[in-house]
């Protein structure tokens, strides 16, 4: 029961994260720079535990990222070992670096490109969670190039497909 709830929260945060990536691609220069440097057509996947929520994306020149079908094989996969571990990261109880240090997820694919993806997740986290919150988990909170509220509003308006 608890796991099912965590699964649903994970799926929801992945939605917000995806929309957030698209908003930040347009409005945050650092995220745009990172994504522009990705190989054309790069495919990425975030898997939240066995049988858990999945976000599969590909690089899109127009919007930064576009969705893919979850079953598709991707060049880069960040795979959480458990639903609970993914929940802790996606709800901001733990940073991506801390989760990596605790072996919460595995990486498939080129570690070089994965690092860029990790930075994008960290930028998004800085907007997603309140500052006092991010400060607790991130080594350094990246400066925001626009207000978190604006990112939320834009994310709501963003096409989630």
């Amino acid at each position: 029961m608890k796991r099912e709830l965590q699964n649903q929260v994970n799926a929801l945060v992945l939605q917000v994260l995806f929309r957030g990536f698209r908003v930040l691609y347009k409005h945050d220069e650092r995220v745009r720079k990172e994504m522009d440097a990705w190989k054309d057509g790069l495919t990425l996947k975030l898997v939240c535990g066995p049988g858990g929520a999945v976000l599969a994306m590909r690089k899109s020149e127009r919007t930064g990222v576009a969705k893919l079908h979850r079953a598709q094989r991707t060049a880069i996969t960040m795979r959480f070992k458990s639903v609970e571990g993914a929940f802790r990261v996606l709800t901001g109880q733990m940073s991506v670096s801390q989760a990596y240090a605790a072996h919460f997820f595995t990486l498939e694919g080129d570690i070089y490109q994965t690092m860029s993806f990790v930075r994008c997740v960290e930028y998004a986290e800085a907007y997603l969670f309140p500052r006092f919150w991010s400060r607790r988990i991130l080594k350094e909170v990246p400066e925001k190039e626009l207000s978190a509220l604006r990112v939320y509003v834009l994310a709501l308006l963003e096409n989630g497909r």
Binding site: S97, Y100, Q113
Partner: peptide, 9 residues
């Protein structure tokens, strides 16, 4: 260097 796995930890 920024893309090296070691920066994350």
């Amino acid at each position: 260097a920024l893309n090296d796995g070691a920066v994350i930890v």
